[in-house]
Amino acid sequence: MGSIIWLTVKLAGVTTLILLVLATPLGWWLARGKAWWKEAVGALVSLPIVLPPTVLGFYLLIALGPNSPLMAPLQAMGIRTLAFTFEGLVIGSVIYSLPFAVQPIRNAFQALGQENLDSAATLGASPLDAFLRIALPLAAPGYFVAAILSFAHTVGEFGVVLMIGGAIPGKTEVLSVEIYKLVEALEWREAHMLAALLVGFGFVVVLALLLLERRIARRAAADD
């Protein structure tokens, strides 16, 4: 039981870190880019919100499987398939939770006043400098929201793991799927315990988000 909880936390943690790195350039470009096809990319990023996770899981099972052209370069290195591996679950989770990281970060970058960046440039700061010293700190609340949502959403992920996991103890066996199996096996007592744990966790996450939102609103009011 402990190993399942640890693996769930590890999967959610690794996924969140990768997502925060990935969502930074993506969110910036979506917020401030000028390309006309920008919203097409935005839609693609948001797609996992509307797709049933089983659709994603099914395609991933094929894409990460031994007959997939995507796997050909890895097969040259002796890796037959990424299905049933921790790495495979991370890839699935990153895609699945992508919108929950990109959207808050994109919003945060969109809310940055152009004047802040302009005055930094006037004072001789390089674009990278301005980004690191002005934009990033101002966008920090967006990053918090992105991190909390990505982590929580990955913990709650079910369909994708179900389809590509294979329930290997210590590698791909996570909480949500375990609960499903416990219910199926009629082991309701254990199922109750884990389910209650997730309900508590979910409540704490949502509460943290609401408190964070209130603080941001208050700070914005104080700035005015």
Binding site: L61, I62, L64, G65, P66, T81, A83, F84, I164, G166
Partner: peptide
Amino acid sequence: FQFVQTGAA
């Protein structure tokens, strides 16, 4: 069966 059919296993 799905795992075997797709070749994943």
